[in-house]
Structure formats: structure tokens, C-alpha cells
Design a protein around this nucleic acid. Sequence first.
DNA 1: CAGTCAATCTTTACGTTGTCTAGATAGTTT
DNA 2: AAACTATCTAGACAACGTAAAGATTGACTG
Lengths: 213, 213
Amino acid sequence: MRGMKTAPYHHGALREALLDAAETILKRDGLNALTLRAAAREAGVSHAAPSHHFGDLTGLLTDLAADGFRRFAGRIKDALEDPSARRWDGARAYLAFAIDNPALFQLMFRADRLDGSRPSFKEARMHLLEILAESRGIPADKPSVEQLGKMVGGWSLIHGYTLLLLDGRLKALLNVAPEGTTTDDLFEAMLASADSQEIGPKPTMGVEVHGTN
Amino acid sequence: MRGMKTAPYHHGALREALLDAAETILKRDGLNALTLRAAAREAGVSHAAPSHHFGDLTGLLTDLAADGFRRFAGRIKDALEDPSARRWDGARAYLAFAIDNPALFQLMFRADRLDGSRPSFKEARMHLLEILAESRGIPADKPSVEQLGKMVGGWSLIHGYTLLLLDGRLKALLNVAPEGTTTDDLFEAMLASADSQEIGPKPTMGVEVHGTN
DNA sequence: CAGTCAATCTTTACGTTGTCTAGATAGTTT
DNA sequence: AAACTATCTAGACAACGTAAAGATTGACTG
């Protein structure tokens, strides 16, 4: 068996290979199936190899999430800088990324599986925040509480919709909606309602519908 | 050792005891520490006992989440029916429940750990949806897309803020906020901005701040 | 160029988990 | 009283995270 092509003892770029393998598993089998051993199998190395590059499972997930934040911020930035950008196009890019990478997006906001103190992760997260602030013309250094309220409002609206959609919580609403309504229709209707606010007689949950039609 | 009080072979109310134990662990050690075996230890029974009452871990978590939804809906309903309820008090109750029961709230929206087909769970979830719809005067049977858009908008706003807060994503914002700003201040500022919408020149992320002050 | 060192990867091992199976125990019904 | 059923225990197994120790390879040093 001399001529047999055997894998070299040193992989050479195992770190990147493991990250690729991890994302493959994330897309194919979901976050619950993404284990250190599964990533090692996918990359064709021994089960203990990943720990040398990421420390522990949290480390691997955190690096994956940090890369996710970088790509996420890039997509939003592109949408915002497009000269033909319409109102809410940043928000649409936010949602589109989550729909294209559902498991990755959910991982990015799963504090219990991530190490928030990791520098690369902190940096990637901060960069996104700056983009969100900049898109509203809010100063990054000394914003007022009102400005922050508006920023958090926009962020919460999009983020909340995104997570409700990914968690399947909107299906029940689509069942009672007019025939043929899609989640995109729902999203656009939500954005439209956010633009034109109407106040009713006793809107204790915030938004009130005008009487009968 | 005749007089020694030994535990009876049959617990009598093990199901409820396990649910109590599970919630104790959830509050004390978080969702990741809530395992079937840990619940069994906490209740003082053998490690395989829980499976007879809940089938598997997903079953236990689903029953716990269903009970959470029931209490959650109750708290919101109480807030809405209070004759002295102010605008947004339903939303405040939503957030308050999540702050009081952070791990339970997160479990309730973790589709990957729950069995959405379980009848008791479906029912509890639907009940909440009805309360949310009713609070806006939206008909439960034939709502328009515009009405659903407003409902989803209010829900997403509150839900998004709640999850961002629980995930610790708002800490970075508080660091740059005026000295002494609390998350409650941020929440109220967000609600205020949702009431008085102002449209700017090119608000591609949705909300725009008026020029200089 | 020979020798040492450090980085990289494998092997082995241990404790914990979910879950399956078989068996023990205790109420309930007939 | 006897059969039946629900409830709980005991033991086992594979998969996981993680730690320790050894093997292999490349790089650096004299």
C-alpha cells in the first residue's frame, strides 16, 4: 500500500475547514446537530482536533457567529448604500439574510451558546450596531434617549418579526388571513402600518385599528 | 431501621412534582441545565421516571412552556382588563413577564426544543394570540391584511425588544446613552417614538431622526 | 546539516446525557 | 383473592464534551 494517498498528518488549514464543515452542518442539520465531533467527522479529522483550534464548542460557535455578523453587516450595508434604495430596504436586507441563513441567524442571537467576551465577536457585533445607528443618522458617541428610542424601535420591530417568522409563530396568523397572503405581504403590511400610525380610543397594546370597514 | 421514613414506591403526584422541579432548575441554573435526569434528581426519583410522564425531554419542556403561555396570557389579560390601564400597558405586562421569568420566556419561543403539535401547547399558544388580537379589536375570524400588519407590528416591536434585552444586546446601547439611562427609559422612549412617527429625507431603515437639535 | 522545540493532530479515557429494555411495586378492578 | 394496569427502578448503550498523553511534522537554532 505504498502508493495509497493518505491524508497528511497536518491538515494545513484545518481551522477554516472546520468552520466550513460547521456551517455545512448548520445549514443541513440545524444547530442541535452541530457538535464538535460532527464537525470533525465532516472535515475528516479526529474528534478531538477541533478543540485545539477553538478551545471548546462555545468557541467554535462564537467564531461562526462572528463571521455571520460580518456577512450580515455587509449585506445590510450594501442595501443601505445602494443609490436606488427605497425606504425600509435596510430592514428588508435584515430579514432576507435571516431567511437565507436561518440557523446561522438564530445562532448569532443565542447568547447562551456564545462567548460574548471574545474580541472578534465583540468587534463584529459592534460593527453592526454602528451600521444600524448610521442608517438613522444617529451619532455613535452622544445620542439622546429619544434618538436611541427610535433606533431601538426600528431594530426591535424588524428583529421581532424575523424571530417570530423563523420560530413559525406567524403560521397561525396566515391561516386566518385572506386567501393567498404570504409572509412577505404581512411584512410589507407591517412596515406600512409603522409609517402611518393611527391612534384609537383605548389602544392598550399600542396599535389600534379603525372601526369597521 | 424500622421507623425510618422511606419514600413510597409510588410518588402519587410525580408529574406535578417534576414540573415544579423543572421550573426550579430553569430559574436557578438556566435552560441548559434542565435535563431529564436533573429534574429526576431534584424530585428525588430515579433517572428514568420522567420519561413515563412526558415521553421525552421535548415533552417535558413543551408542557412547561404550555403552562408558561397560560400564565403569560393571564398576566397580559389582567393588564388589558384593568380599568385604569394606560396605553401600552399590555406591552409593559408582556415585557414584565419576560423579565420575571427570563429562562421560561426564552423556552416558550424556542421552537427547536418544543413539540408544536402537542394539543395543550397549541391551545395555550392560540389563546395568547386571541388575546393579542382582541386587544386591538381585530376580528379573530376574517381580519384584513392591514389589520394583521398592525397586529404583527405591535407584537414584533414588543417581542423584538424583549428578546434583545434578554440576550443582552442592549447593553452596548446603554453604554453610549446619557448617564443613568435604564432599559426602562429605553423601552418608554421606544414606545413614545412608535406613537409619534416622523419621516425623514431618506430613512432606509425605517425611522429617521429630525435634523439637529 | 544535525538537533531541539513548538505546533498540530490522534488516541485513549472519563463523566454526563437521552433513551430503551426488563423488572419490581402498588393500587384497582373483578 | 386474583388478575390487571399504572407507576417507578435498575441496567445498559451510544453520543457527546472535554481532558491527558502520545505521535507526527514543520520550523528554528547552533
